[in-house]
C-alpha cells in the first residue's frame, strides 16, 4: 500500500488534490481511499488530506502517521508546529515541496533526511489558471507522477471527473488538464517503491480522569493575548504600500477585518506583517491604488 499525505492551506485545493489522486489511482485499476482532515473550515489555516492506494481492498482507516509520500503545497508550513507536515517521515519517505528553491537548499534549510523533490507549481498554476493559489490539479499531478503507478491518461480523466463534480465548466477543466499534463511530464516518475509496513495500530482509548476545576475550566487572564499568535504565514500574497501615492485616507485601516493595518506616527497606514493573512482587501479597497501585492515566494529569503 502507498500512503500519501497532502499538506496545504484552506483554499489551496488540498482536499481536491487527494480526490483527484484517488480517482486517478482507481482509473489505473487500483483501490483507493481519500479523505481530508480539518477542524473548522477556514481559509489559510493548515489542512491535511490523504490518499491510500493499494492493489487489494484498502481496509486501513484513520490518519496516516507514516507516509510514503508527502506533498507540501506551501513551504511556510514546514516550520509550523501545528501543521507539522513532516511528522512521521523518515529517510524512506519521499518529500515533494512546492517551492522556488532548489532541492539541495530545501534539504539544508529544513534539515531533511534526504533530498526532496521540488517544483514551482504556483508559477504553473498562475500561468494556466491565472490563480497561483489553487494547487489541487498541480499537486495531484505531481503525486501521480511520483507514485510511478498512474498513467497520464488516468490522471487527465480524474481531473475532468473531480473538477466536473465540483461544478467547474469545460473550459476551466481543460485548462486544468493542460496544467496536469505539464506538471506530469516535467517530473521524473517511478521513484516511489512500495514498502511492506505493518498496519498502523489504532490509537488506544484515553482514560480521562476528573480534573479539579482550576485545571478543567482554566481561565485566560491576559486580555488581548491573541496577538501572540502570528497569522502572517497564512499569507500567499503580500500587500505593500507605495507611500508616495498614499494620501492617508485610512480606508485600508478601516476595512482590514483583522486589525492588521495600523496607523503610524505620520498618520499613514502600516501593515502588521506578523498578523496580515493576505486577504488583499486593502489592495482592493485603496482609492489611490497605492497598495500592490506580490507573491510570498518562500518561507525564507
Amino acid at each position: 500500500m502507498l500512503r500519501i499525505r497532502f499538506h496545504g492551506r484552506g483554499g489551496q485545493g488540498i482536499k481536491t488534490a487527494s480526490q483527484i489522486l484517488g480517482s486517478a489511482a482507481f482509473l489505473s485499476e487500483f483501490r483507493a481511499q481519500d479523505f481530508p482532515l480539518y477542524g473548522a473550515e477556514r481559509r489559510g489555516a493548515p489542512i491535511v488530506a490523504s490518499t491510500r492506494i493499494d492493489r487489494k481492498n484498502v481496509m486501513e482507516r484513520g490518519a496516516i502517521y507514516h507516509p510514503d509520500l508527502v506533498l507540501v503545497g506551501d513551504e511556510s508550513l514546514i516550520g509550523d508546529p501545528v501543521a507539522a507536515p513532516l511528522s512521521g517521515t523518515d529517510s524512506s519517505t519521499l518529500i515533494f515541496i512546492n517551492s522556488t528553491h532548489r532541492p539541495e537548499d530545501l534539504r539544508d534549510h529544513f534539515k531533511l533526511f534526504s533530498l526532496p523533490v521540488s517544483a514551482d507549481l504556483t508559477r504553473l498554476c498562475e500561468l494556466h489558471l491565472k490563480r497561483g493559489n489553487v494547487l489541487s490539479t498541480a499537486l495531484a499531478a505531481a503525486a501521480a507522477r511520483l507514485t510511478g503507478l498512474i498513467s497520464l491518461e488516468a490522471l487527465l480523466q480524474a481531473v475532468d471527473m473531480e473538477l466536473g463534480e465540483s461544478g467547474l465548466g469545460r473550459e476551466i477543466r481543460e485548462k486544468n488538464q493542460t496544467l496536469a499534463g505539464e506538471v506530469f511530464n516535467s517530473m521524473d516518475g517511478g521513484t516511489l517503491v512500495e514498502k511492506e509496513r505493518t498496519p498502523e495500530p489504532a490509537a488506544a482509548f484515553l482514560d480521562m480522569k476528573q480534573e479539579e476545576v482550576s485545571r478543567a475550566a482554566p481561565l485566560v487572564l491576559t486580555p488581548g493575548n491573541m496577538a501572540l499568535r502570528k497569522t502572517g504565514n497564512w499569507r500567499m500574497e503580500r500587500p505593500e504600500i507605495n507611500y508616495e501615492d498614499c494620501n492617508a485616507c485610512w480606508i485600508c485601516f478601516v476595512r482590514c477585518p483583522d486589525g492588521a493595518m495600523g496607523i503610524g506616527t505620520d498618520g499613514k497606514p502600516v501593515i502588521d506583517y506578523e498578523h496580515c493573512k493576505g486577504c488583499l482587501i486593502c489592495a482592493e479597497e485603496c482609492p489611490k491604488h497605492a497598495i500592490h501585492f506580490t507573491r510570498e515566494v518562500s518561507a525564507w529569503v
Binding site: E41, R42, M226, A227, K230, T231, C249, D272, K277, G278
Partner: peptide, 22 residues
C-alpha cells in the same frame, strides 16, 4: 468621518478566522 473612528484594536489580531471574514 472615518478619522473619528477609534484607532485602538479592541479585537486583537491573530484570530484563526478566515482571511476576509465579514
Amino acid at each position: 468621518k472615518i478619522k473619528e473612528i477609534n484607532r485602538d484594536e479592541l479585537v486583537a489580531p491573530g484570530t484563526p478566522l478566515c482571511a476576509g471574514c465579514g
